[in-house]
Amino acid sequence: MSAPAEGPGAGFVAEALSPDFGFYLRTARVLAERRTPLQHIEVLDTPLFGRAMRIDGCFMTSERDEFFYHEPMVQLPAVSHGNVRSALVIGGGDGGSARELLRHRQMARVLMVELDGDVPAMAREWLPRVSAGAFDDPRLELRIGDGHAYMFQADGERFDQIVLDLTDPFGPAVQLYTAEFYAACRERLNPGGVLSLHIQSPIHRSETLARIVASVRTAFAHVAPYFQYVPLYGTLWAMALASDRVEPTLLSPVEIDRRIAALGLRELKLYNGAMHQALLAQPNFVRELLARPAEPIRAASALQDPTLDPEACAAPRVLAA
């Protein structure tokens, strides 16, 4: 791991979101960097977002904008459920999703299964504002291992909420976006449990989004996509709640605010009753997209999307000094 240093890595850092567009950030320096057997992890210091983590050239999270992702990803499903006492996070090595789950005072246990142990290790050292003490909470159990393999283990462990806080669906991560995997998630949920996941962007990965939703719908009675602009991702981002019983669209702003107060959720930066409805509102182009037939992703079939090329993020790291 590199020592903090001025100079190397300073300049403009680019990320290609697709072959057709992307964005850049100014970076002051590279704070830390590791090449693990699985991936390339960097922590950069940026003037706009503070410390930010990239994996294989793609931005994952930052100190100053992470709540745009983590709060809706976790809280909309958790509050819609109303009484989450046990939760499983697959991925989520930066600790943000675990932090949001542990805000719930009735939460008894959160299990995080992260494939690469260097991700939580680097996040704990360099991004403590993201996890906000979650890694030291005795209710959190961190296991380093394969989340896909864990989901198919016959240990009978069940949860009220499962959060799939994953990298994008290319390479090994594809197997965590299949109809078969979502069926396994359903078997891991307690009655009335909720699954939360991100489903890509309707702007530049619309067909992949539609196929992920179709895949989740093979396993769950209710699937509710919702949408939030995430600054670090440079685009409108989509997430979804899946459940056999919970229907978040039926909950009023007043009821959501009542539940937030009852659950003791303080200092939320984004999520509230009005935002609950705003997140679930679907623009017409998204309604049209989700109304079209889409083929579920199966374990035996490849996901073809040119924007998901593993090299897509790998634009030159420094555009200009």
Rank of each mutant, 00 (worst) to 15 (best):
E6N: 10
R245P: 09
A132W: 04
K269N: 05
L25R: 13
A5W: 00
Q282R: 06
E66M: 08
M60P: 07
A291E: 10
G93V: 01
V13Y: 10
L140H: 09
E42K: 09
E207T: 14
R54P: 13
Q304K: 13
I256S: 06
F67Q: 12
E255R: 01
E33M: 07
P225E: 04
V223L: 12
E63H: 03
F135K: 12
R51L: 06
E15W: 06
Q106D: 15
R29M: 05
R211Q: 12
A5D: 05
Y182M: 08
P253I: 02
L88V: 13
H204P: 10
A3T: 03
D309R: 00
A274S: 15
F21V: 05
E71N: 02
R64F: 07
E114N: 14
T167Q: 07
M53P: 15
G171A: 01
P296C: 12
T46A: 10
A300T: 10
R188W: 05
D257T: 01
L290W: 07
F181Y: 13
T208R: 03
E187Q: 15
T307F: 01
L290N: 10
G156M: 00
P138S: 03
D65C: 11
D257I: 03
R54Q: 11
D309H: 01
L102P: 08
A312L: 09
E207Y: 06
G193F: 07
F135R: 15
A183E: 14
I199T: 11
L289E: 03
G234W: 07
P248V: 03
T307N: 09
R51P: 11
G145T: 05
Q304P: 04
D20C: 04
L189N: 07
D118Y: 05
D116P: 08
F220N: 11
E288S: 15
G193R: 09
E66G: 09
Y69H: 06
R34A: 13
A278E: 12
A132D: 13
G22D: 08
A98E: 14
A14K: 13
E295G: 12
P120Y: 04
Q200T: 05
L142V: 10
S215N: 12
T167E: 07
R186V: 08
R211D: 13
S215I: 02
A3Q: 08
V89L: 01
G145Q: 02
P296H: 14
P120R: 00
D45M: 12
L209P: 12
F227L: 02
A321H: 09
R51Y: 10
Y24L: 06
R105F: 10
L250Y: 04
L250S: 13
Q106E: 15
R109A: 15
M239F: 06
D65E: 05
F152P: 11
F220E: 13
W126A: 07
S131L: 04
T249M: 05
Q153T: 14
G11W: 04
R54I: 10
L189Q: 08
V84C: 12
A242H: 05
H222K: 02
